[in-house]
Design a binder for these strands. Structure first.
Lengths: 147, 147
DNA sequence: ATTCCTGCAAAATCTTTGCAGCTAG
DNA sequence: CTAGCTGCAAAGATTTTGCAGGAAT
């Protein structure tokens, strides 16, 4: 079973377990979130579904994202320009590297993350529960481009 | 000269140099941003000024923040709940540690930051230009509190 | 004197909510 | 059946913008 099928099943199961109905709209949203290809926005999710399901409403996308967020099965990525994008494939906090030109998002594996977290707790006497680590820059393609 | 007086002079000078007028409203906003005590929000800045200057408008606060941001002299901190707060005292990217209970924000010095940036560039082949590093948790006071 | 700035109100986003009808279980 | 869900439209919340009068230089 692929990672994405696995995520899909997990989210659907959590919805069932918490007594929520599995509607076609909900299913379509979960399917896209489980894949989270390119970290979709609300608009993006809505328009993907609206192709085959013209009455799909934005409100339903918003409501379902709130619901799935409350189950801890999707991560909301708010960006400096105010836009939000979502990750239901890796719904736990993790670092992102974002190309400011083509908007590509890469998830790096950073060995130094644990160390940094320890350093934060040591220096500030906080208990760290969560984090948000984003690096912005140019991807290899956009660096090479002429314009 | 204190750090904050220094920031105040720097911002005012940048405004003059770029041909902008120094109005009383602008001055009041810069004064608060230079200090950035507790990392104020737009509402917060506006209401502080409105005490002594009742006609002060929110639009003017927004317009001046856009201007000062464009000069690189204030950092905008967008939070997961959609709120924004500002730092004109340290306007360059730096890590934050935020208490989810009392909303206190601490700026830690992290030796591991350089290493992490290198690790990101090595692993992703991006050129990193900017970052946004926030840790969320409980500060020592809130950890100790009973409720 | 000019040019830029401000206050006000309207507009533009983005997200949430009330309601009446519909549907999954 | 019936609790929960959806679509629509209206309401919120936050930020931006057009305009005419006013202030800084």
């Amino acid at each position: 079973m692929t990672d994405q099928e696995n995520r899909y099943e997990t989210i659907i199961q959590k919805l069932r377990d918490s007594g929520h109905k599995i509607t076609p709209q909900r299913l379509a949203i979960v399917k896209i979130l489980a894949r989270s290809e390119g970290h979709p926005s609300v608009e993006n999710i809505h328009s993907q579904i609206a192709k085959d399901f013209p009455t799909m409403s934005l409100a339903t996308v918003y409501r379902n994202i709130v619901l799935i967020k409350s189950l801890g099965e999707v991560l909301e990525l708010g960006f400096p320009d105010g836009s939000n994008r979502y990750d239901g494939n890796k719904p736990y906090p993790h670092p992102h590297v974002i190309c400011i030109k083509c908007k590509k998002i890469v998830d790096p594996d950073l060995d130094s993350l644990d160390e940094m977290k320890k350093e934060v707790e040591l220096e500030t006497d906080f208990t760290v529960l969560n984090h948000r680590l984003d690096f912005f820059g140019l991807c290899s393609n956009c660096k090479a481009a002429k314009d």
